[in-house]
Each structure stands twice: as structure tokens, then as C-alpha cells.
Design a protein around this nucleic acid. Structure first.
Lengths: 253, 253
DNA sequence: AAGTGGTCTAGACCACATC
DNA sequence: ATGTGGTCTAGACCACTTG
């Protein structure tokens, strides 16, 4: 038996090696990373998206599932679909276990003290980490993190300018103990992804004195690059803490 | 408008808070972890599974997608669906970067030399790690891993008995440089998941001499627990290497 | 050519959250 | 009560892999 006409109409735009759902996802991914869809805002209902794009519900759902897996949207049953907000942070403390009473992994947010805040010329290494094409100014912070009053982590932070310039116009006491929520609130910079590189080192004399440890004491050094929704690197951070307190668990497969 | 009869028949087994696809996945998950479906073997085609269980193709696919995400099956377009085999290993070397010529992350499999192989009574810590209810015998291995002839990692390994007893009946030279493939081939134990716990420590005098380092030298200590398909812990491994060569990258979100 | 997984449709019904 | 995402069906067609 042959058919004179296909039972189903072919897709209006003939897929160029790209599945329909992948195309929709790409389109919406761009809307998010470009900021046209604001972080935290609601996305149109599946049904409505399906009508708008003349696609079946299942196809729309497949596209949304892809974006959800990428962490760009969050779906809430019976409520709606929302553009991802900035991560509150990937606590540096998860790399350490300081035996402060509780033996459970520390859940408290460490107190933050900003030691220094100034604009400096980016070194070659910093420029590379922040994808700066030319030598350019960056915002440099030194920050001490304390747990139960005891200094535990020393952070050296470089932030992209002019994106993060608004931090300069507020006293650091107003930032709160977490940097990323402050970046989102004050600068409109939403940190969405980060990459931590861990190695072992020894404390310089000045670094050691901040942490109340002897010079040359072994430390863990965590080098982080943080990226905004568009994938642009916005922060480089070097965090140092006592090597004896370092503890990290990796799940394989 | 009311309907005298539902357009679609209700599921034969009324879901007890469990989605149909989740039930199918649970059933097949059990078949895999119990060994009824052998690692590497082919699973029946989607169409056939759908007929067998009187379910729609989409539902079967949803169940299989779940198992694929868990790493229990592997799907190959145009070929078939296969039960996952044992992982070849989560190379310990991924935690280290030894500057042997190439600066790229070492991809070569390090040579293995078994220093010691014997049956010992499990200590309390080992018994806990391997979920042994009573004090029981375990297979203890000491192994040195070499890169370009240079000793780089020292491993202390405890294996569950009697599961891994077959290793005792073959000369260690026949095992090859990777333990997990040997466990699968000789013992029928398929390592499917592992958990690595990282910390910094100092080398004891005997350990240091094996690695050609001075006693007290800082080292990275990776404590691994490896699990078979059923989730049973089968291996505990302590790996030590020069802390200065330690380097690890974590992706957040 | 035959068999497999991957995409897409069109629709019904269910479960959850909010007003 | 209404609207949202989640489940399920039944079927057609596409793309890939192998004999």
C-alpha cells in the first residue's frame, strides 16, 4: 500500500542535522545566557511554548529537559519553569573539615573579613584566567574567612571590570558573608558555574601569619575560576587553608 | 460531556505512588544488580520490552533512560541496549601530574608491581569499610605503581573474601596492570562505582623508601572504597603519592 | 534489507501548587 | 477551580549499524 500524501507534515524547517528539540533548546539557551530571559523569572508554560512553536508537547518537554540537565532552568511540578538564578556559592569549606566541636561537615557560613580592596593591573596569569585580551584593570580583594572566630581560610580574589565595579561603591560590610549573592544583587553578575583546581603547597610567611600558622606550613591551595550565565569567566580566586584539615570526597561513575 | 467508559484503560497494576516507568526500571535494575542480566549482554529491543510488559514505547524508553543515567545500561544507536560492564578503573593517576616529559595529564597506564599478597584478619576499620559483620579474613595486597620506571604511587589494598579469592590462584604477573579488569575476569566481580576520599598526610619511613622520598615528606592519601553492581563494597584501597605532584580539578554545577 | 535506538506527533489523564 | 508540570498511550517516520 502506498500513500499519496504523508500522514504527518514534515517539519517546517528541515532539520540540518539538528533535532527539533535541540534547536528549540539552543534558541532558549541563548535567551537565557544573553539575559533576555532574566534569572529567576518564569518561562511560558509547556503548552504555550508548544503552540508558539507549532511543536508537540513531547518535543517541547524534551528541549526543556535538556536545559534542566544543564542547570539553566529549574522545573517545579504544579508551579512552573524558571530561569536558574545564580548559585549561592560552592562553599570552599566543603574542602575542609575543621574539628570545631561538631564532627559533621561544617554547614555554617564562615564569617568574612575583607582585608584589602583595590583596583590593580591584571598580571599575565590573571588576564589569561579571566580571558582578558589586553592588559586591563581588575578588582583585587583579599579576604579572610573565620569559623567560630578562628581564621581558617585566606582568599585572594580577582574580579572582572567593569562588570563588578559596583562592589567598589558599597562598603564591604554590606556585602554579607557570601560573595556570589552580593555579585548578583549589586552587579547583576550571576555566577552559574565554577571550576576548582586543587593542589598542595606551603604557606608564605605573611599568609601563614594571617592563619595563625608557622611559615612554610603545608596548605591546600584551591584555584577557582567562576563563570556567569554566558560562560564568561568573571572571577579568579586562590584559597589557602591548613593541609591537615583538607578532606574531599569524589564519587566515580 | 461525560464519558461512559474511559478512553484509555487504567494501568493493569494500579500504581502505588510509583510511576509505571519507575516500576519497570526498578524491575530491570534488580535483574542487573542480581546478575540475572550478565554484564555486557544485550537487553531485549525496546519494541519487544514494550510488548512483553504491555506498555507504550515511550514508557519503556523513559525507564531505560533512567537506567542509562544511572550507568547500569549503555545504549548504542542502531545497535542495541547493553548491560554495563565493569569500569576499567578510575585511574589513581588522574589525581597526580608527574612532570615526565609530557605536561599533558598522564594517559599511560602505570606499571604495577605486587610487593605482597596474603590473607589477613580484617581490622575494625577495614571490616567497617567492607561492611563485614564479623571479624573475617580479607585479601591484603601491597602494590607499587611505576611511571617510566620511576615508582610514583604506593597502594595498600584490602579485598573482600571469598569473592576475590580467585586472585590467590593466579600468579600476580598474570593480572595485568589494572586490578578491576582482573577482578572481573578472574573473580566475576564487576566494580561499578567507587568513592575516593582525599587528604594530605606525611610518609612513614618505610612508605617513603618505596617511593624514593625522605621520611616525613608530604603526600596525598586517597582512600577508595569500590562497589560491585549490587552495591556491595568489595575493595578498600589506600594510595599514597608525592603531595607536590597532586593536582585535581572539580567542576561545580 | 532488516533491526535497532532516536525523534516527533496528538491527545488523554494524573498529581501538585496556588488562589 | 484553575493552571502547571508529569505520566502514558499509539503510532509514524528517521538515522544508524550490521549482515
Amino acid at each position: 500500500m502506498t500513500l499519496d500524501a504523508p500522514l504527518l507534515a514534515p517539519p517546517s524547517a528541515p532539520a540540518r542535522g539538528l533535532a527539533r528539540y535541540a534547536g528549540l533548546a539552543a534558541q532558549w539557551r541563548d535567551a537565557i545566557t544573553s539575559g533576555r530571559w532574566a534569572p529567576g523569572s518564569a518561562v511560558a508554560a509547556e503548552q504555550r511554548l508548544a503552540e508558539q512553536h507549532s511543536a508537540a508537547l513531547g518535543t517541547v518537554r524534551q528541549a526543556l529537559a535538556l536545559l534542566a540537565a544543564e542547570g539553566l532552568i529549574e522545573r517545579r511540578h504544579g508551579h512552573g519553569t524558571f530561569v536558574a538564578s545564580a548559585i549561592v556559592g560552592a562553599p570552599m569549606l566543603r574542602f575542609f573539615r575543621f574539628g570545631d566541636g561538631a564532627q559533621a561537615p561544617n554547614s555554617a557560613v564562615p564569617q568574612s573579613v575583607v582585608l584589602q580592596r583595590r583596583v590593580v593591573k591584571a598580571s599575565a596569569a590573571v588576564a589569561r584566567a579571566l580571558s582578558l585580551s589586553q592588559p586591563q584593570d581588575v578588582l583585587r580583594l583579599d579576604r579572610l574567612r573565620l569559623l567560630a572566630g578562628a581564621p581558617r581560610l585566606l582568599e585572594r580574589i580577582w574580579l572582572r571590570l567593569p562588570e563588578c565595579a559596583a562592589l567598589l561603591q558599597h562598603p564591604s560590610a554590606d556585602w554579607g558573608d557570601l560573595l556570589y549573592p552580593a555579585l548578583a544583587r549589586l552587579c547583576g553578575v550571576h555566577v552559574h558555574r565554577a571550576q576548582d583546581d586543587i593542589q598542595f603547597a606551603e604557606l608564605s610567611k605573611p599568609d601563614a601569619s594571617h592563619l595563625g600558622l608557622p611559615a612554610g606550613h603545608p596548605c591546600a591551595l584551591v584555584q577557582r575560576r567562576a563563570f556567569d550565565l554566558s560562560g564568561q569567566a568573571v572571577e579568579l580566586r586562590h584559597t589557602r587553608g591548613d593541609a591537615r584539615a583538607f578532606r574531599y570526597t569524589v564519587e566515580i561513575r
